[in-house]
């Protein structure tokens, strides 16, 4: 099962190396990793998705992360109320004959066409990784020529608003 960890680190040179090196050395598998700045200067947020079924492994990953001097906070947010988002760029075969079909198909995903060529279109989609997966599966029969995914970035919800927003979200999703 995938677990999503958010890791707040000092924004120092080499920190990403420290983290990926740690995963390599300890034999932990990274599904995806994203890094970016945060609201606090000098701190970065990493969102790391790992494939681990054994809670002992997840615990070991978290403890090993904490041993890094540059790691300030690690949270396993998998089971918390959270928002997880990913962006995908998909160039799909789409001669004029299928173009309107593709356009209709992506509409419920609230994906958009951001580039149009003679034989293909480029689609941009954001959302939960499951949604991206579903979109990719639907587009595959048309022939995907190029695919780029950012990996997940995520954080927890402001708990007071959780129930409300998730209802809102369910309506909007798909």
């Amino acid at each position: 099962m995938n677990r999503i960890l958010t890791v707040i680190v000092n924004n120092h040179a080499g920190v990403l190396n420290r983290i990926t090196g740690l995963f390599l050395r300890r034999g932990f598998n990274i599904q995806s990793i994203t890094v970016g700045t945060t609201e606090v200067e000098d701190q970065s947020r990493m969102t790391i998705v790992i494939d681990a079924d054994d809670p002992a492994v997840v615990e070991q990953v978290i403890k090993q992360l904490y041993k890094q001097i540059d790691v300030l906070k690690v949270t396993d947010i998998t089971d918390m109320p959270m928002v997880a988002r990913e962006l995908a760029l998909i160039r799909v075969n789409s001669p004029l004959s299928t173009r309107s079909e593709v356009t209709t198909l992506i509409e419920p995903f609230r994906a958009s066409i951001i580039d149009v060529g003679r034989e293909s279109v480029t689609i941009q989609a954001t959302g939960h990784p499951d949604k991206i997966e579903a979109l990719i599966a639907l587009l595959r029969p048309y022939g995907i020529k190029e695919l780029a995914r950012t990996g997940v970035t995520a954080f927890t919800r402001d708990t007071e608003k959780v129930a409300e927003i998730s209802r809102f979200n369910k309506v909007r999703a798909l």
């Binding site: 615990e59 070991q60 403890k63 090993q64 904490y66 041993k67």
Partner: peptide
């Protein structure tokens, strides 16, 4: 070192 606890032996 908390990482040593539970690493090899439950």
């Amino acid at each position: 070192d908390p990482a040593e606890i539970g690493k090899n032996v439950p």
